[in-house]
Design a protein around this nucleic acid. Sequence first.
DNA 1: AATTGTTGATATTTATAAATGTCAACTTCC
DNA 2: GGAAGTTGACATTTATAAATATCAACAATT
Lengths: 145, 145
Amino acid sequence: MNPSIKKTEPVFSISTAARLLKISVHTLRMYEREGLIIPYKKKSNQRLYSQADLDRIQCIRDAINQAKISINGIKSIYSLIPCWDIIKCSAEEQKECASFNGAHNPCWTYDHKNVCKERDCRTCEVYTKYSQCGTIKELIKSVSR
Amino acid sequence: MNPSIKKTEPVFSISTAARLLKISVHTLRMYEREGLIIPYKKKSNQRLYSQADLDRIQCIRDAINQAKISINGIKSIYSLIPCWDIIKCSAEEQKECASFNGAHNPCWTYDHKNVCKERDCRTCEVYTKYSQCGTIKELIKSVSR
DNA sequence: AATTGTTGATATTTATAAATGTCAACTTCC
DNA sequence: GGAAGTTGACATTTATAAATATCAACAATT
């Protein structure tokens, strides 16, 4: 891979991404509809994927096909990411946050308020930290004493 | 329910438990084989279930049938419970613990060493804290700063 | 301006997880 | 001691999640 291109740079069209991952464009759109991934969108509404996106999607595929975790299972796991700790939102903000209060879907699938409002979920640490497989437990460890 | 009987007292036979939960005995044994539940075992190897067991199993069924989380998904979620924090095991002990080191199954499905060796998983807080649905996120919150 | 690719929506197929069925050996408990 | 219940192992069924297919409207690329 060209090292001058950042891993987070959205450069692959949906058909290229599908070819590289050996899946169909339908599947890629399905994962997006389910809230598992957030591809970059051009002004014309067309999707672009970065290498980091591809890595993340490969993890999702491994979870589904090898680990046999259902899509809803993956969403539930994502919902356990301690976003409130990662972005250090205040107790006040936590009080009116769906993610903090027992949500069962990833935080980036909800409407945002407060600190999160200013953030782009696609580039937010909460979303990007799971671009490598199996990092959620590490995340939990790092926030626990 | 008779209030003099503790919720954790193993009193229901497998067929009674199945009838109360409206499922088959096969399903109960399957959940056990998968490591989702740990029923009490008589000396003769026959199973007994407590009210807490029934509550827990109902949560599992809701996760499978309503939330559409696969059994492997539930196992993965259980594996995220910060047991090292709950039972306060030492850094030394963590080093040689499968659960601490990226396990993808619940800690109670592994062979135990150190502090855990003395514990009965069935009564261990790590296992019992999820007898109420949706408490894992609360657990993660409570251990994060 | 013509070809190739993308969009979202709906319908269909397929792969397989979850749940049952069946069995013979063993317990339990009137 | 005999009926009713339980055990584990293996086979089978069924319910449905995941993946594809098809479509007409729109965008991009040459």
